[in-house]
Design a protein around this nucleic acid. Structure first.
Length: 224
DNA sequence: CCCTGATTCGC
DNA sequence: GCGAATCAGG
């Protein structure tokens, strides 16, 4: 397997989404957990609950890789001792000015959560019914403004604009800044407009006379 | 042992 | 650039 743009994109999304390397590897298929980690590092993205914490118990019948023969090569030769100068343990440099020394509020860092996410074809985030995240608002100390939906998607049909009368055909990919929905008037009785009904519902043709490109929503690759 | 990510290093 | 082997921590 090679790292196509699609696969890299999925890797990034999932990695940044908090998925474990194993989950990503399984989703991508054809690659090992190590491959995913290695690629992630090479892509520059690392960190995250990096070291080795976060107890996350996922009942997964772990498939063990075949026992590889030991590597007779001499490795681990150079172990940088990293002589740390051990700076004086000054916990707080203390603000010079005697002014307000309020500790920076906004504990914006909320992590260590057993966040479990999965991704569907195309790499969109799949959430369960109870997977919403209500406990987020860390309270914006700012004054609330009339919510400007950003000029980019001002006249686009967002998720919140969906109703029974507009076409739900996704335009673009979820997660992208300009992701939106068709928004046309639906073909009565269908969730899509006439045009996209034609894309969503296609007559089953006899074998040998199949349409070449099966247009899938989200344009997701990955056929399993 | 199981899991995790990090790192190394031959290819 | 890739990823198995290995390391290291929970």
């Amino acid at each position: 397997m090679s790292w196509t743009d699609e696969r890299i994109a999925t890797l990034k999304k999932m990695w940044e989404g908090g998925s474990t390397a194993s989950q990503i590897a399984e989703e991508l298929g054809g690659v090992s957990r190590n491959a995913v980690i290695g690629k992630a590092h090479r892509l520059g993205l690392k960190a995250r609950p990096s070291p080795v914490k976060a107890k996350e118990k996922t009942k997964t019948p772990a498939k063990k890789k075949v026992a590889a023969p030991p590597r007779p090569v001499a490795k681990k030769a150079a172990k940088p001792a990293a002589p740390k100068p051990a700076p004086a343990p000054s916990p707080k440099p203390a603000a010079p000015t005697g002014g307000a020394n309020a500790s920076q509020p906004i504990p914006n860092r909320q992590e260590g959560l057993p966040k479990i996410v999965s991704y569907g074809p195309g790499g969109f985030l799949r959430q369960g019914p109870g997977d919403q995240q209500p406990p987020i608002p860390p309270a914006p100390p700012r004054r609330l403004v009339p919510a400007k939906p950003s000029p980019d998607i001002a006249d686009k049909t967002s998720l919140l604009d969906l109703n029974d009368r507009v076409c739900r055909w996704p335009m673009g990919h979820p997660g992208e800044p300009d992701f939106h929905f068709c928004g046309e008037k639906v073909n009565p009785g269908f969730p899509y407009c006439v045009e996209h009904c034609g894309r969503a519902y296609q007559a089953q043709l006899p074998r040998g006379a199949r349409r070449p490109p099966p247009p899938l929503p989200f344009g997701g690759p990955r056929v399993r």
